[in-house]
Simulated assay, not measured.
Amino acid sequence: MTNTTADNRQTPAPTSGRVPDMTLIAVAAPPATNRFLVPAAAAVTVVLWASAFIGIRAAGHDFSPGPLALGRMFVGALALTVIAGLAGKIRLPRGRTLAGVIVWGVLWFGLYNLALNTAERTLDAGTASLLVGLAPILIAVFAGISLGEGFPARLLAGIGIAFAGVAGIALATSSGASDTVSVALGLAAAVIYAGSTILQKRLLPKVDSLTMTWLGCVVGAVACLPFAPVLLHELAAAPTSATLSVVYLGVFPTAIAFITWGFALTRTTAGRLGAATYAAAPLAVLMSWAVLGEIPTLFALIGGTLCLTGVLVATLRLR
């Protein structure tokens, strides 16, 4: 994404053989069309991030947390390099902006994935997604304090409804097998998620989101390089299905989902977009039911309905 000053420039025609920049599409689109692009991008992100909890569980039987994070980031960095190269959008930031992007990459692409992968060693996919589902509350609080976004009554009401749904799902789906460390790591992942979102929101006016996503993923992969020897050993022994799960995690929940996330975050408040990610929790429960055979209870389904209701209350604009 380009800086806001780009809105005043004439939109150039995309060159042959290049992927058109999403920012230019958004600028050129009529306002009515543009209003649909942000919700669509957010929806893609939520669905793909929900599927990541399933992918981690599927690959976690054959890959330990560190190597899994490295494999995912390596694939994601390759995919983003291809996308950014075709789009011609890699423009490295400098100075403090570059330092901020590096910190962001270590936090979200490195530490977040390492914490979540470790938590899901004993937590089921649904419960892990519910713990991380606390992040939107933290994002709204952090954004209200540090970004001056305030605390609109509708946002707070939506968060309250969705949090009640998250709590209900957590009570209904907890298997009792998780230990205190895994729960703490899941909560730590939520804190890292929220802090990274606020940092990204601050940096986006200074660097386009595609470059930021690409560089952050590369930094995350570099931070995980100490796990390379173990990754090579586990790759040699892992079944094809587990390796494909790692590839899926790198291409879809990482490369594509972070592109659409950055696109949406550039055009809406961090609190509003963070509230939309509450939908990931019920989606993860349904996906784990379909893919992993984890059948949700009636209370889990009721909690999921509350989550989606809270998302609608917090994110839909009243006319």
Rank of each mutant, 00 (worst) to 15 (best):
I54A: 09
G71D: 03
S288G: 14
G60S: 04
T260H: 01
L24H: 06
L231T: 00
C307T: 08
M287D: 06
A77D: 00
L98E: 03
R96W: 15
V246I: 15
Q200I: 02
V38G: 03
A184N: 05
L147R: 12
F151C: 15
G85C: 01
A177P: 04
L98K: 05
D7S: 14
G126L: 09
V181L: 15
P229N: 01
P65S: 14
L235G: 01
N3P: 05
T118Y: 08
G293Y: 13
L203S: 06
G66Q: 09
L107A: 10
W49A: 00
T240G: 08
S175N: 14
V246Q: 10
S178D: 12
T213E: 11
N117R: 12
K206M: 10
G66I: 07
I25F: 06
A276W: 02
W108I: 14
F263N: 05
L138P: 02
A52V: 11
L286H: 00
E234M: 07
V106R: 12
E149I: 03
N34G: 11
W214D: 02
T269V: 07
F109T: 03
A221E: 01
S245I: 02
A221W: 01
I25G: 05
A26T: 04
L24E: 06
T213F: 09
R57G: 10
A77P: 00
A275N: 08
I198Q: 05
F109K: 01
C224M: 15
S175W: 05
A177D: 14
L171I: 05
E294Y: 14
L98Y: 05
T118K: 11
V101P: 00
A190M: 11
P226F: 06
G55E: 01
R272T: 10
A189Y: 07
L131C: 10
G303V: 04
I54M: 09
A242C: 10
I198D: 03
H233I: 08
A157T: 06
L286K: 03
T15E: 14
L147V: 11
L298N: 05
R91N: 13
S16V: 05
T254V: 07
T11I: 15
G165S: 15
L244D: 02
V132E: 00
G176M: 13
W289P: 13
V222N: 03
I192W: 04
P14T: 13
F163K: 06
R121K: 14
A87C: 11
G160D: 13
P93V: 11
S245K: 04
A281W: 00
L111Y: 07
A41T: 12
V132D: 00
L215C: 12
V19W: 13
A119M: 09
P67L: 09
A42N: 10
P39I: 07
A236N: 04
V132M: 03
L235Q: 02
F36P: 02
G85V: 01
V101K: 01
N113P: 03
L156A: 15
C307Q: 10
T213A: 14
F142H: 04
F36Y: 07
H61M: 03
G144N: 10
M287V: 07
Q200C: 06
A188P: 06
G76M: 01
S182K: 09
L306Q: 03
L24C: 04
A275R: 06
A188T: 13
V106P: 11
W289N: 15
L199C: 06
G110T: 09
A279M: 14
H233Y: 09
M212S: 13
T315G: 11
G144S: 11
G60R: 00
G148A: 13
T2I: 08
E149N: 08
